[in-house]
Amino acid sequence: MLSMKTTPNHTGVKISGDYFDLDELNQAIYKVIGKEGEYHGYEGSRLRILGVSYEIRHAAQGDRNVEFVFNGLHENTKKQHGFIAPDKNIYFSAEVLWPELLYAAYALRDFVRLYGDKRGDLLADTYTPVIAKFQALVLECLQGHVPGEEYAAILEAFRKSPSVNEYAVQYVDLLNLKYIGMNRQQREKSLSAIAMKLTLQDSEYQAFRKQVIDAAAPGKQPIHEIGIQAKYPEQVEW
């Protein structure tokens, strides 16, 4: 079963599951976000989501964390059915920074809509329910670490926030780096504000986006191709 929990230093979220859980999520992400260039104005967001998917895929391949989880098979059940079997399953996991994961959950809202517009009736679709569960798990994990009133406001923002069409995704890097630079207590206090900033696209974001657009204008580049000068640390204390 796919699960999420915040990391010890509140830096991010550990996404856990068996191989099939993680592979199912990856397949759903690939299907819903479409191919490169398929949705004009969404390529930057698509690449950010692929970054999260990359970690999930490597987790499923055993390249990140591996742990053993009780599978519900008790000794009396083994005796009753007369077989020998392990009572633990192998689970894989990977950590993702909180701002990055929140943005992925937020941006996937648009991709589900775009996918639905292209596909039509989603009644028999098996991919969008997997995405919905992923988004719900992110928000459920967030709920345990923010005050109730703030969580209600975040849910409302996720429902009504603007589209991520032409979103300046470098802003996610800015929030990631700020968040990494905080201590645990500061992260706990700022998580609600970061979730709101990602979704509401406030005046700070708009000013940042204008800088990105200005940087892209001379070469007529897509705004998602503009890099930032700041670098991520080689090691993150999760």
Rank of each mutant, 00 (worst) to 15 (best):
G12I: 07
K14T: 04
S16W: 05
G17E: 03
D18Q: 06
Y19K: 12
L25S: 00
N26S: 10
Q27F: 03
A28E: 02
I29A: 01
I33V: 09
I33L: 03
G34R: 09
G34Q: 10
K35D: 13
K35T: 15
G37N: 12
G37W: 06
H40L: 15
E43F: 00
S45R: 03
S45G: 08
L47P: 07
R48Y: 10
I49P: 04
I49V: 14
L50A: 09
V52A: 13
V52P: 03
I56K: 01
R57P: 01
A60H: 05
Q61G: 00
R64F: 13
R64I: 15
V66S: 13
E67C: 11
F68A: 10
F70I: 11
G72M: 06
E75H: 05
E75V: 12
T77R: 13
K78I: 01
K78G: 02
K79M: 13
K79V: 13
K79G: 04
A85T: 05
P86D: 12
D87G: 05
N89S: 14
N89F: 05
I90M: 08
I90C: 09
F92P: 02
A94E: 11
L97I: 07
W98N: 11
W98R: 12
P99Q: 11
P99S: 15
E100G: 10
E100H: 15
Y103Q: 12
Y103A: 10
A107P: 09
R109F: 02
F111R: 00
F111T: 07
F111Q: 03
L114F: 03
L114T: 12
L114G: 04
Y115G: 02
G116M: 05
G116K: 07
D117F: 14
K118V: 06
L122S: 06
L122A: 05
A124F: 13
D125H: 04
Y127N: 04
T128Q: 06
I131V: 08
A132W: 07
A132Q: 10
